[in-house]
Design a protein around this nucleic acid. Structure first.
Lengths: 227, 227
DNA sequence: CTACTATTCAATAGAATACTTGAACATATG
DNA sequence: CATATGTTCAAGTATTCTATTGAATAGTAG
């Protein structure tokens, strides 16, 4: 292999790896990834969740599909996109860690928009497990019910944050409540805890979301009939 | 936090994370990262190693610097760039794994350009350690000597592949030789092993490069006086 | 078959990116 | 001081990316 051929090799090789970087080089696509980490979603749902037009969401999904980060399945008129692999979430998680530890701006943004997050008394996964064993915790999944169906923490009750106010009467005040949602940047659990606290409950927020919980090697439950 | 503010939050947040993706979205930059994983290098060296013009290499390095993936230090007229953090290598490694397992094209390219790699009888890190303990191995670092100085495997001898032919007489044929270089896509060790085998040596190629070895938690040696 | 819905495609305009060239800047040396 | 060297900057051009719009396609239901 001469010098020129060696250069060609590196160029075409690293260009292939760059396809993955390109797929991760847009904020909307990263947000899509994060929602997809909760389980498969239709284009329509994804567009709604991320505040994009359908056509735009579709195009971004196709970019990630071309990079092999996501896969699709058709069911009726719906196209259900999902992460191609658990590794893809690992990759996003690693990227997130690098961002959190190196890009000061990120911390500043979280502080600005989620200023009073410490009032939500975050609880860690190990601590939650301990408390669950003791049996004095009500674990609340406040994500949309489809995501609960796709995978949820063992023993969790599903009350989407949008319905929480209407279902408060069903929750006893005897137990401390721990609410969780999609992950560290999901605000469903923040909102739920704030609402619960305002109504006299003792409520805390789980630091992890479902994908982080799973990445820790902890078990999740799949609803009967969910794919 | 109302709906609009929530959207704004997600948009600005994920846009920040996308800065990292953008920095990783170009093949040249990934190749720069891989060379930087060997230790700090001047712009000139990096440009040479990656076959870019100086101005172009400088600009790519500044893109990665803006994303906080690399840092610089000036010494005299030279600017020495380095990875900002071990985490950055972890990120690249994760991305590499995703690429290797998901993008078929990558395997095809490696097959095409490094077709006879299996003849080099790759040896794994644990196997090498075993053999080093037994003491019947000569371990050869065939990277440029500056990279050897920055960090090398314990007990390794430095003979850059460019000088190897001239130094063959110094190598006894009694011991089996294991050559290593920068990593899985570096061909220095391939060339070294091919040359050694052609001259009657028993030679093999270490699968890992120095950064992968370090990422496994194995020790490296830093030359006296190297930073 | 028609009507309907979810998604993709195609065309477009505006923004961002990549590479080159030559000038400008910073540091070291005589 | 002038000169030399490594690096960065600025400008220009070609290319790629993003979001929007409206049309086309694929499947479902009547």
């Amino acid at each position: 292999m001469d010098k020129q051929e060696k250069r060609k090799f590196k160029n075409v090789l690293y260009e292939q790896f760059a396809r993955i970087g390109k797929a991760l080089s847009n904020g909307h696509r990263l947000e899509l990834l994060e929602v997809l980490a909760q389980g498969e979603h239709s284009v329509e749902t994804l567009a709604q969740e991320t505040g994009m037009s359908i056509a735009n969401a579709s195009q971004h999904l196709q970019v990630m599909r071309a990079a092999q980060l996501v896969e699709v399945r058709r069911e009726g008129v719906y196209q259900y996109y999902r992460l191609a692999d658990a590794q893809v979430f690992t990759l996003w998680q690693t990227m997130r860690q690098v961002g959190e530890s190196r890009i000061a701006e990120i911390d500043r943004i979280v502080q600005t928009y989620l200023h009073d997050r410490s009032l939500l008394q975050p609880i860690s996964a190990p601590e939650l497990i301990q408390r669950l064993i003791e049996g004095n915790i009500l674990l609340l999944d406040v994500r949309p019910s489809e995501e609960y169906a796709a995978a949820h923490l063992p023993g969790a009750l599903s009350i989407p944050v949008t319905n929480l106010a209407a279902h408060l009467s069903e929750l006893s005040q005897d137990k401390e409540i721990v609410a969780y949602c999609r992950g560290p940047y999901c605000v469903f659990a923040d909102e739920a805890v704030a609402l619960l606290q305002a109504h006299g409950y003792t409520a805390r927020r789980l630091e992890q979301g479902v994908p982080e919980w799973r990445a820790l090697g902890l078990p999740t439950v799949i609803e009967k009939g969910a794919s």
